[in-house]
Design a protein around this nucleic acid. Structure first.
Lengths: 217, 217
DNA sequence: TCATTAAAATGACTACGAGTCATTAAATGA
DNA sequence: TCATTTAATGACTCGTAGTCATTTTAATGA
């Protein structure tokens, strides 16, 4: 009768998972409030009422924690992108929908973006366990796949030119990130520098890409 | 006769400037080799045979040093962009020239890009003197101005649609950075992920933008 | 109920690096 | 030569990431 034993083990695992989540929640709050460099492990430990050593039973390094928050962000994005899979058939603005979904995600999850940009820096990656990085990459790839499918559909319906849909998905992704990064860098002076606010710039960019995709009349 | 005095003072200033440059050279080597987080001020001090304290007579923080290297990179970029001001009149591929100039700059100055991306992170910026950040921004603005002028010229010659040339310059810049950032993040797996190497992706992006800019036939 | 053992949590401790500042050395000038 | 200003030094402080011997808690079973 190891059923009893097994059940105990399961409970343990659940407790561990709950602990892990509590730590992540604390880390999220601290990193959101202070950024990576100014946050300390003690801050995070205090926030979830654990000792510093305990944190290291659940995560390998400060970077592991940080990148795990990024992974969380990617997961949220994927969930947000799920709706794109079930667009009403015949829907015309395929790429536009994806673009706007990403903007919408940004609006609701601003704080994750700083983390995404910093945690993809080689310095941070070098101290992050492979598995976490892999998880992020895979989630990102799924999101990108959804966008690629939309582009492909647009091509098949002859809305768009015959372009490399995977490349276009990557370019869309990179362009938006590039713009967001530029604005996030210096939110105070950037409007003045660029002469318009971010959303408007993003929509300009959308317009440019759509024009580039459209079949010529 | 304070001519003597003055000359002495001038010599002093020159020596200080030389010292400053020596420190910057050492910092560049160390940061290029180790990245921001793994580099230490002692590394840099050793490299230019000075004591740690001396570094702090010339720079306010590790971040000041780091961002000063970024400023150096921006300066190089601007010099690279100067040629764009004197394109042969009647030259058709205006935006293409700018795009390729930026790619060329990237090829020759890969190492500066990591620094640019990290030193524009809020964490780093917060510890960098305003003046250095301002210098970077101004240099960037000059570069962007050159691109805007090219776009504007293209519009006036009716190569391109009537778009907001400043916005397009910003979008071009952001898109290329976004792509480079994506690849720099994980140069090993990225080719596999994206299915093509960076240069090809950049050229795809150029194609897309040019199509988006062209006047419809 | 209590002893035994295994697992989890703890926080004092180590190692290390950024930044400081009292001290020393060099340059200048009378 | 000596006085004074300026530059350079490196031992020091302080803060934090990560460790590990010790303690606490929980599970097991007699």
């Amino acid at each position: 009768m190891n059923t009893g034993q097994k059940r105990k083990t399961e409970r343990r695992q659940k407790e561990q998972l709950a602990r892990r989540r509590a730590i992540l929640a604390a880390a999220r709050e601290v990193f959101f409030a202070k950024g990576f460099m100014d946050a300390t492990i003690d801050d995070i430990a205090d926030r979830c009422s654990l000792a510093k050593g305990t944190i290291y039973l659940y995560f390998r390094s400060k970077e592991d924690l940080y990148t795990s928050i990024m992974a969380e962000g990617m997961e949220r994005l994927r969930r947000e992108f799920e709706v794109l899979k079930n667009l009403p058939p015949g829907e015309p603005g395929l790429v536009e929908s994806a673009f706007r979904a990403y903007i919408g995600f940004y609006r609701k999850n601003r704080k994750y973006f700083r983390i995404m940009f910093l945690s993809s820096q080689p310095d941070v990656r070098a101290r992050t366990p492979q598995e976490v990085l892999l998880r992020c990459m895979e989630t990102g790839m799924e999101c990108m796949g959804i966008v690629r499918d939309l582009v492909q559909e647009g091509i098949e319906r002859a809305y768009y030119r015959k372009v490399d849909s995977w490349a276009v998905a990557n370019i869309l992704w990179a362009s938006i990130n590039g713009i967001i990064m530029a604005y996030e860098n210096d939110p105070i002076y950037r409007d003045e520098f660029a002469g318009m606010e971010m959303e408007k710039m993003l929509l300009h960019s959308l317009d440019l890409v759509l024009e580039g995709l459209k079949v010529k009349k």
